[in-house]
Nucleic acid binder design. Structure first.
Length: 259
DNA sequence: GTTCTTACA
DNA sequence: TGTAAGCA
């Protein structure tokens, strides 16, 4: 019987891969046809089918085409074991990355949901101790612009997932901070009860206006605020609207005045 | 009609 | 990795 071998498209169909990919494997030196016919067609036999199965399995398990070629040239079973372990480690790291990414998405969604269920924009909340990392300070009269951020030297790759805090310290300039873990934070927000006022605004005037409401709310409810007043830019709530920016005014409640 | 090579996004 | 052109 003539023609026990099959053409590239038959092999591709059989193995559920593209013709292109089979030629690619050849170019990379890991799969060659049984022979080339007179018309220059690549012809593949049973050995190539098994070989391609192995290649596809190794690719699925995360081995690069280059690693497959190198192992084919000079590979031991120990080496293959090592390659597979490395691959599993890489994949587990990727799973962890994806896990934390979905957790972050859920955190954003929860934050959105919680703002929508809150009856009042004002909340008294008990907070654990938390830490901020100073970024730089800015004069009260100066407006924040792109150049100032660029000139700070440090990059903030995770600017989008951290809430920027503007600390208004008594008499001093405004201090911009990012949320930090204890070890790299230089500002401690002590545990205690805080007054939180959520609002959204488009411009500076709005923010000041809301600050006045924040202070007058505290006064009306006989709350004595202490420590810096903090403006928190809720960066991921702002994801949900085109041109509003979501903020919180935040300050620690020292004590409640007796009437 | 199918495959081959080469080039390109 | 897919797509396309020009050939055999």
């Amino acid at each position: 019987m003539l023609n026990t071998e099959i053409t590239i498209s038959e092999l591709a169909h059989l193995m559920q891969v593209s013709v292109h990919q089979i030629r690619y494997f050849e170019e990379k030196g890991i799969l060659y046809p049984a022979y080339t016919a007179d018309n220059q067609y690549r012809m593949y036999g049973i050995d190539q089918i098994y070989r391609l199965s192995h290649i596809l399995l190794m690719r699925k398990m995360g081995l690069s085409v280059q690693a497959i070629r190198q192992w084919t040239n000079e590979g031991t079973s120990d080496r293959m074991e090592q390659l597979l372990r490395q691959s599993a480690t890489r994949i587990e790291a990727e799973m962890a990355r994806l896990r934390s990414l979905t957790e972050f998405i859920h955190k954003v969604l929860e934050e959105k949901a919680s703002t929508e269920t809150e009856a009042s924009a004002y909340q008294r909340v008990q907070r654990e101790v938390s830490y901020l990392s100073s970024w730089f300070t800015i004069d009260k009269e100066t407006k924040l612009d792109a150049r100032m951020l660029a000139q700070q030297g440090d990059t903030i790759p995770e600017l989008f997932k951290t809430n920027i805090h503007y600390l208004y310290e008594e008499g001093g300039p405004i201090r911009l901070c990012t949320e930090a873990r204890q070890e790299n934070g230089d500002i401690v927000l002590p545990e205690g009860e805080y007054l939180v006022y959520r609002f959204s605004a488009k411009g500076e005037e709005d923010i000041e206006h809301h600050y006045e409401r924040f202070e007058s709310y505290a006064e009306r409810h006989s709350l004595l605020l202490t420590g810096p007043r903090m403006l928190v830019e809720k960066s991921y709530l702002s994801l949900f609207s085109q041109d509003d920016i979501h903020y919180e005014w935040l300050a620690r409640i020292d004590r409640t005045l007796q009437l």
